[in-house]
Design a protein around this nucleic acid. Structure first.
Lengths: 238, 238
DNA sequence: AAGATATTTTGTGTATACACTAAATGCATT
DNA sequence: AATGCATTTAGTGTATACACAAAATATCTT
């Protein structure tokens, strides 16, 4: 289903601005472009082989998404994320995941349940191989399946906005085997609740799941900042 | 507080693109620009006295917000909102309002409570005068105060995105005196719950309040479509 | 007159040019 | 050497120019 839309799109015409948007977005979320880094239009244009116009239009979208901040007459720079920003995002996401789980309870069908099961299984395989990127991918797939099942387009849109905002932290904390075990267990529990059509329980597990993630990420950051301060490095924790 | 930031901003430099963005956004939300209407860059540029560049950049933001849709090589047009879209938006908003109420329970201070009280009172005055625009304004102010109290910037950002999406319907259904009475009662109930720091109750009332609004708007639309079909007009219900 | 094929028009998508600001650099003065 | 001022430079903000596609119109053929 996702593949369909995608393979259709590659045949369709895609404006440069959208390609640039996706490229920059990914670069920011993976940390390739670091927070605070300036996005200079001419330089980026040369790198990507396009003029300033598509670059600027892509930046406008990133600005609205909050991934870049504009300094008047100084242009764009990658937004800094503080610890609080991460907590804020995850607090909202927890509420949206709970809502999604509640609605999904009513609307999920066998096909969706199998998708969830598949995502969990593939996650496990990836975990055995310690293939972090695939693990994240399958984790996203799991949550995406639930959101898609809600058939609430606005909810899906907001999820797409929030889902990868903590990408770079998840890479780090999922390396911890214990964390990835926990993710598995919570996914299984949520799947069961959904199959039982137990709205209250599903809501609760979904919210708890994100809170767990938040706690893990915070612990990871705390460790990292500590290590960094021990090494007396002055830069921020990312 | 809101005024401070604003009066600061008017002294600051504001790029044309942002002025255009706000102008177009308002025009769409109030219905001045009708759904389906094409946004032609040159035409808009002449109207607003600017070139295509700021127009295009404003459109990129509206695109991400979902207020306009892009047709490849045909440009932008104001997005159509179906009945389902409204329900989707309000379903999400209900969840966010509930979250905001819960957090606000912990963080609201006397100053914020007075703001809520003031918003309610001014709403009542406006209701007596049947000044719909002011009523909407004060209603927004009430909810805004709660969201601001959460101190969760992401939550506030999303609220700003969702809050006015149903603007044109509220104008219509608030004309109904019964509805505006109900709004008053629910606001009072929510204020009390917040003052009691009763998280569960506040959450519940906040969500219910939006659901009430959703039902009212749906009823209004149903009536309107019915009237229109009786008049055998073919256009959509907005 | 109907249909097929040029032709024109309109409007987007992208690139480039111009205007202006702010920071950086250099130079002179003390 | 430090400070103040002029000059340059780098980069954004805005306008315009060019390229191209799609739709609309006109023209030709039968």
């Amino acid at each position: 289903m996702k593949e369909d839309t995608f393979s259709m799109k590659i045949n369709e015409y895609l404006p440069l601005r959208d390609i640039v948007f996706q490229t920059l977005r990914k670069a920011i979320l993976t940390g390739e472009l670091e927070p605070g880094e300036r996005l200079m239009e001419i330089q980026l244009g040369e790198k990507l082989g396009v003029s300033r116009t598509p670059i600027r239009e892509a930046i406008r979208k990133l600005e609205l998404e909050g991934l870049v901040v504009m300094v008047p007459r100084k242009g764009a720079q990658v937004a800094h994320f503080t610890e609080k920003d991460i907590q804020d995002v995850l607090e909202v996401r927890a509420a949206l995941e709970a809502l999604a789980a509640k609605i999904a309870c009513k609307r999920m069908d066998d096909r969706s349940f199998l998708k969830l099961q598949l995502a969990i299984t593939e996650y496990d395989y990836a975990a055995k191989e310690k293939d972090i990127e695939t693990m994240i991918e399958k984790d996203v797939e799991f949550h995406e399946t639930i959101f898609n099942a809600t058939q609430n387009d606005k909810l899906i849109q907001l999820f797409n906005n929030l889902r990868e905002q903590v990408h770079r932290y998840r890479i780090a904390y999922l390396k911890n085997a214990g964390e990835s075990e926990l993710v598995h267990k919570e996914h299984m529990a949520l799947l069961e609740a959904l199959q039982e059509r137990d709205e209250k329980l599903a809501e609760e597990i979904a919210a708890k799941h994100i809170q767990t993630q938040c706690v893990s990420i915070m612990r990871f950051i705390k460790n990292k900042t500590q290590r960094i301060s021990e090494e007396s490095k002055q830069r921020r924790f990312f």
